[in-house]
Design a protein around this nucleic acid. Sequence first.
DNA 1: TCTCTGCTTAGACAGACGTCAAGACAGACA
DNA 2: TGTCTGTCTTGACGTCTGTCTAAGCAGAGA
Lengths: 124, 124
Amino acid sequence: MSKQVVPLAVIDLNADAPCCPPLAQRRVPAETAAVLAPAFKALGDPVRLQLMSMIASAEGGEACVCDLTPAFDLTGPTISHHLKTLRQAGLVDAERRGTWVYYRARPGILRQLAALLTVAPADS
Amino acid sequence: MSKQVVPLAVIDLNADAPCCPPLAQRRVPAETAAVLAPAFKALGDPVRLQLMSMIASAEGGEACVCDLTPAFDLTGPTISHHLKTLRQAGLVDAERRGTWVYYRARPGILRQLAALLTVAPADS
DNA sequence: TCTCTGCTTAGACAGACGTCAAGACAGACA
DNA sequence: TGTCTGTCTTGACGTCTGTCTAAGCAGAGA
């Protein structure tokens, strides 16, 4: 797992414009890879991928933990742990309002990742 | 790490057309998540992200292991291990020609992943 | 056939990850 | 204020991952 999350902020993960050219267009520099790989890693678990999707596709753009937890055969702490991983990867934001905690997706970084994976329309 | 790679082939990772609507549009079903998460996981390491980029952006669409290995401060077997991971995730293909082994990216699955991460242009 | 080069596989080890149980904390309501 | 509900944090345990060294396998050339 080559070390741990690098807290580099050289790349603005919240910017709307893609930070980097597509992966297939130019070689990704080591610094960029170190920043973006943790985000891919966070999406590399089926539970987190579904959580991310549930949050991003939720009405109003945010989802309550109380809605997320029952959707899985996992305990509350485990879901909380996965949500923390998504938060640390910069993929979601959390906010407590009263009893419940609400999670909201950060579209900026999703755009960065999508842009990086973009491939020319016809060359398969 | 929630078990191991699921060998499901319900989703055609080589199809050119996206298999699934964007993650932020509709909730990703468990089966889809189980198939696509390993691909994200494979990209979740800085070394593999760079390898993938070097292969996908190489002239002629393919890269020789002999060109990839010297680009990292890692031993040959370690690079070979990472390439195997990318291969098992369906992200690249390998072919031996004479003495050297060449790796080629599979644009289909990259398109699937990019499509899944696609976000509406303006909602951040 | 023999030897050399290049890549993969096998085995081992340290560290990270996924999961759970138990406890702590924050807010709502009587 | 006291209690209840709901969520997060902490600690522990088993498994997986990333890396290395050593060994094995496949072609090329003498």
